[in-house]
Design a protein around this nucleic acid. Structure first.
Lengths: 271, 271
DNA sequence: CTTGACCCTCCAGTCGCTGGAGGCTGTAAG
DNA sequence: CTTACAGCCTCCAGCGACTGGAGGGTCAAG
């Protein structure tokens, strides 16, 4: 016979938990002194305790364990329980895998954005640059500019892990349109995929006049004005679609501070 | 302004949970009617709600979320939090992987034992058989026979996934010894591994006189008696070590019913 | 007889909700 | 004008598997 403390050492179960198991009827001491209420455990308790810890190690719930102990006297008979438990744990496992993957993507995305930001933060001036071709997935839309957020949301959901860099938007109008603008939110991707309603193609290389705009989107027009003046002065021809690259904008989690948004405007030119 | 029900639909958070978040100070409504105590939510609440659900989806605790909301106004700033969360989730992930693997091993082990049992259940008679060579890991011990359980426990812990079949024991004494028997608990393994205190080698093929003993181990002697008589009658020579294969014995979880134990005694013979 | 280790019971807290009881308000239908 | 119903409120309890603390009894040794 063991006192609860001795039994705790023998079984590797904390005293508190032993008392709890007793309350739960899961592991009832062999004897209880009716005077002092001291619990006393025996060999058979020890064996049962072993089974309980073995099953707890396999993440069975106490209810499951109660059931198993009632049903089974043999390893063979718990096969069905094991299978069920395995399934349920596999579910959890997959869930955690998904979440970890999501976080990894977010982290990578942040790193990327940060680098891009650093790289381009210096150049708030108008520049002429060659833009390399890239594979993009886009959703062509008509409506108000501000609706492009929904397009990005859809692209993110649909493409998740395939996204290669920050989003951009193509504008197909040669003029400013209020409510029926013609534009296409896009994200660069690594590999072609085919999803209904999403067009995947290579965006061609282009010589562009570019400018990084710092601040909220409703002030973009001033930067467009500067760019257009520059283009006019040089006698360039602006080709459609024009592009906006959202170097730093509202994040995946936070809306962020619009004063810090960075948007690169790219006007493809000919001539 | 939204009522709580409208806001629930807009945010995708159940009404109950919204009230709970309010109690917790995590998402405080923009206004509360002092007469009716009705809650009213606004756009900024909606944004915050979005952040909260995004972070909950990443399995952040409410405390973490509170902290993040206080610290960060930007995706970039939560990078550290993301990293920490990823680490903690990766831990859980690995834990579940381990447990699932453990269960898989147990299941496989059960299946195996069951098959073996079926295959051999018919042959309760003495037979002469050729035993194939096999790779085993063993721990040589001296002491009481019953101590071999500890040896198996150690082998299981150390070799876990490498175990290929049920355990066996080798006996090096040409006589019955009470307290200083010389024996070696072994498990067949698939691949050689080197672990301190565990000897790995190929157990040679052997022509054996075998008998499956059904029942508790303390009755093994009667089966040994039958076997020895058989051997004597035929004029065979018993070679050491002799072997016992525990076809069905105490399980990994349950001790099982000793009356159902199956033990194959194998006496290697020469001549 | 005291000390200190060990045991007891009972209650509360963890985490993130979820459920129910019981009650108020506001609107629409009978 | 009553009644029904939807929608809101507060307060309390429960889940699962413990863990922690308060407050108090018991036991063996010095």
């Amino acid at each position: 016979m063991f006192t609860i403390g001795e039994f705790s050492m023998a079984s590797g179960i904390p005293v508190r938990t032993l008392r709890f198991y007793h309350d739960e009827g899961l592991l009832v001491p062999a004897a209880i002194d009716p005077e002092t209420n001291y619990r006393f455990y025996d060999e058979r308790n020890l064996e049962r305790a072993g089974v309980i810890t073995a099953l707890r190690d396999l993440e069975f719930s106490l209810d499951d364990i109660r059931e198993i102990l009632a049903d089974c006297s043999d390893d063979c008979e718990i096969l069905a329980h094991l299978e069920r438990q395995k399934d349920s744990l596999t579910h959890k496992l997959r869930h955690y895998q998904d979440v970890v993957q999501k976080i990894e993507r977010l982290i990578e995305h942040q790193r990327h954005a940060r680098e891009e930001e650093k790289m381009s933060a210096a150049t708030y001036e108008i520049a002429e640059r060659q833009i390399d071709p890239m594979l993009v997935a886009g959703i062509r839309m008509t409506g108000h500019y501000s609706d492009c957020g929904q397009g990005f949301a859809r692209l993110c959901r649909a493409l998740g892990r395939h996204m290669a860099a920050g989003p951009l938007c193509l504008f197909y109008d040669g003029e400013y349109r209020e409510g029926d603008a013609n534009f296409e939110p896009c994200v660069p991707i690594r590999k072609a995929v085919s999803i209904d309603g999403i067009s995947v193609r290579e965006l061609p290389a282009a010589r562009c006049v570019t400018l990084i705009h710092r601040g909220p989107y409703d002030q973009l027009r001033t930067s467009y004005a500067r760019l257009m003046k520059f283009v006019k002065d040089r006698g360039f021809d602006v080709q459609l679609p024009t592009r906006e690259v959202y170097v730093k904008g509202p994040g995946m989690i936070f809306r962020g501070n619009p004063k810090k948004y960075l948007t690169e405007i790219q006007l493809p030119i000919a001539g």
